[in-house]
């Protein structure tokens, strides 16, 4: 099969995946106990008529499957409904916060991938030496530590005790920044605002590190073990017997084969990073969709929770799509699948 056909097939497979994801999230939120209308009305003893009127307003009186189709139709028109605990549409609320999450998530992903793969390779090539032991301890610490606790400790040390880095938010209040993409670092570069850039980066360091440590550790461990596995293969011996430099053997012949398990983990990381963002954003008061999700859950704001879940699910679907395509690019054997 050609690479093009392989990619086309992966794209077609998106359709059932998207239906599945929306169906599951829709059903899950509807199965949550508690009546959102009651919550909306608060402690007041509302008359059944008021409740019925509100239910009709939000379409909650219609049968479940009709609500699903309505939801699906609206979803594809970019309409995620009105939020309950704020006066704005869900999509507006999400779009306002998404750039913050993307900025944090992408930074953490890039950090985790680059550091994870690099350290993994070094660790494998110099296995059982000092650098390997150090990086393995670092990785073990990363996978063992709960994200929220790590976040608190980082804040305690670098913000509270040492005062080296800011503790919350994305930008100091005193700094003004033109809003273009919503990604503060990019906006600062686009407008040539150096002070804002430095400030945005400073704000990013702690949450990005906190968010990426776990993934960094996983990527590192997988890269190390698959690299060790690949280095023992016959074709590596063949490559050496050709007279290639060790560096070429590692980077050209071993790495590409070893990357196949690693990109699986990188792909899964996208999901994990977004999930982890819920905790990290809360700890660092990062105004992204993660902390908004936590807020909405406490308000039982089903439309918002549902909307964010769908956005996260789509992010996952597309990262998996990219991983699938990368498999095909890296490994010709996969294209047959």
């Amino acid at each position: 099969m050609k690479l093009r056909d392989y990619i086309a097939r992966r794209l077609l497979l998106l359709i059932p995946t998207i239906i599945g994801v929306t169906l599951v999230t829709f059903l899950l939120t509807n199965l949550m106990p508690g009546n959102p209308v009651r919550l909306l009305l608060g402690e007041r003893a509302a008359s059944p008529e008021t409740i019925a009127a509100l239910e009709a307003q939000y379409g909650l009186d219609r049968p479940l499957y009709i609500r699903y189709f309505v939801y699906l139709r609206n979803l594809f028109m970019g309409d995620l409904g009105m939020a309950i605990h704020t006066p704005f549409p869900v999509s507006t609320e999400i779009m306002a916060r998404l750039p913050a999450t993307i900025e944090l998530g992408v930074t953490a992903l890039v950090l985790a991938t680059i550091v994870g793969i690099a350290v993994g390779i070094i660790s494998a090539v110099r296995s059982n030496r000092l650098s390997d032991h150090v990086s393995r301890v670092f990785a073990l610490t990363g996978v063992s530590m709960p994200v929220f606790w790590l976040g608190l400790m980082l804040l305690l040390l670098f913000y509270y005790r040492l005062g080296w880095l800011p503790g919350m938010g994305r930008l100091s209040v005193s700094i003004g920044l033109e809003h273009i993409t919503g990604l503060h670092t990019i906006d600062a570069i686009l407008t040539g605002n150096l002070t804002a850039f430095v400030d945005a980066v400073k704000h990013l360091i702690l949450p990005a590190f906190c968010l990426s440590w776990l993934e960094m550790a996983m990527i590192m461990r997988i890269t190390r073990s698959s690299m060790l596995e690949v280095i023992r293969q016959d074709y590596i011996r063949t490559a050496r017997s050709k007279g290639l430099r060790e560096r070429v053997v590692i980077y050209r012949h071993a790495l590409r084969n070893a990357m196949i398990p690693t990109i699986t983990i990188v792909g899964l990381s996208v999901g994990a990073l977004l999930g982890g963002a819920v905790l990290t954003e809360t700890v660092f008061a990062w105004p992204g969709i993660g902390s908004f999700m936590v807020e909405s859950i406490s308000f039982k704001d089903i439309p918002v929770v549902l909307g964010i879940t769908v956005v996260l699910a789509f992010a996952n679907i597309f990262s998996n799509l990219i991983v699938d395509i990368l498999y095909g690019v890296l490994d010709p054997r996969v294209r047959y699948g």
């Binding site: 016959d234 050709k242 007279g243 010709p332």
Partner: peptide, 24 residues
């Protein structure tokens, strides 16, 4: 020097031809 000799003056073939070639 040994790298210059490998694959040029002395070359090798191995037992399992399928695993001796890089799959990618």
């Amino acid at each position: 020097e040994i790298r210059a000799i490998r694959g040029k003056d002395i070359s090798m073939i191995f037992q399992e031809p399928k695993s001796a070639l890089n799959p990618v």
